[in-house]
Write a protein that binds this DNA or RNA. Structure first.
Length: 278
DNA sequence: CATATGTCCTGAGAGC
DNA sequence: TGCTCTCAGGACATAT
């Protein structure tokens, strides 16, 4: 579930490693099927151990540790991955560890379901993999005209389109529903029937919701999986308006209950009164 | 090119 | 109580 706000929170939680030198890297053996780590560990160690961390960045839903030579180590949490500075939710699912020179620091990668990935790319591989044709502009940078240019001719429903990382990077299933509810757009509305004025509203709502969610350190759902780098839960789940709230009254109109539909095999939540099809 | 669908994986919760 | 089954949705490969 980690989307842009959760991954950004992970990034901010490990900023202290900027400037630190990597002293050890370890793939942690656990009973589960091992997660994908590429290339092999000896290559990763050879290229990273003894080197200094230039910056900790984010690209879409990935945490990026960038070195001085622009080698980048990426953490891709997918469903249940966490980047932690200490205290994992359980020792059982720790998959990867890194140690640093500054003040005995350590980073853990924890992943209950193990769908996440860790990989090292050189600058050329990184630029190619995340070129604009492979990953859209960051969701915090969108504008109405930009969204209209990206999606304006698509026949797909807006909710499904917003999840396409090639178009816009960072929005996932939870925030897509939240954004469209605040923007008062029906999730099944075709992109090519959305006006520029509505694209403006979707853009400003996207930025507002994602920034607020970051300020609250993301959303920890009822399964409790997502945590910040200190293993503390986020707070934005308390501000959700529609996600996972089927049957509860809409907080805007206070009159209609939230409806759940399935689009592209994913749940969508919305209010039939506040989000008209027209 | 755009869009749709199946796959990976674990554990919580439903239903019997 | 304990078993089996379904479902959650990240990214991507493959199909249409």
């Amino acid at each position: 579930m980690p989307e842009l706000p959760e991954v950004e929170t992970m990034r901010r939680g490990i900023l202290a490693i900027e400037g630190a030198t990597i002293t050890a890297i370890e793939k942690v053996r656990c009973r589960r099927k091992p997660i994908a780590i590429k290339p092999n560990m000896s290559t990763i160690r050879r290229r990273l151990v003894g080197k200094k961390v230039q910056a900790v960045e984010r690209i879409g839903k990935r945490v990026v540790i960038r070195m001085a030579n622009d080698d980048r180590l990426l953490f891709e949490p997918r469903m249940t991955g966490l980047v932690l500075v200490a205290d994992p939710p359980s020792s059982e699912h720790v998959r990867f560890r890194m140690e640093f020179s500054q003040g005995e620091q350590e980073i853990l990668y924890w992943d209950r379901r193990g769908l996440g990935m860790i990989y090292l790319l050189n600058d050329q591989q990184y630029q190619e993999r995340f070129s604009l044709e492979n990953l859209g502009p960051d969701a915090l940078e969108v504008t109405g005209p930009l969204l209209k240019k990206i999606f304006g001719k698509a026949k797909r429903p807006i909710k499904v389109a917003l999840l396409d990382q090639k178009k816009v990077a960072g929005i996932g299933n939870l925030y897509a529903s939240e954004i469209l509810h605040v923007a008062a757009i029906h999730p099944a509305k075709r992109c090519d029937r959305i006006t520029l004025k509505q694209w403006d509203l979707i853009a400003s709502t996207t930025i507002d919701i994602l920034q607020t969610a970051i300020a609250h350190e993301g959303s920890t759902l009822s399964d409790g999986t997502y945590r910040n780098a200190l293993n503390d839960p986020g707070g934005y789940q308390n501000m959700h308006r529609v996600y996972d709230k089927e049957g509860q009254f809409c907080p805007i109109c206070m009159d209609t209950t939230i409806t759940r539909i399935v689009q592209a095999q994913r749940s969508t939540f919305f209010c039939k009164s506040c989000q008209k099809r027209s």
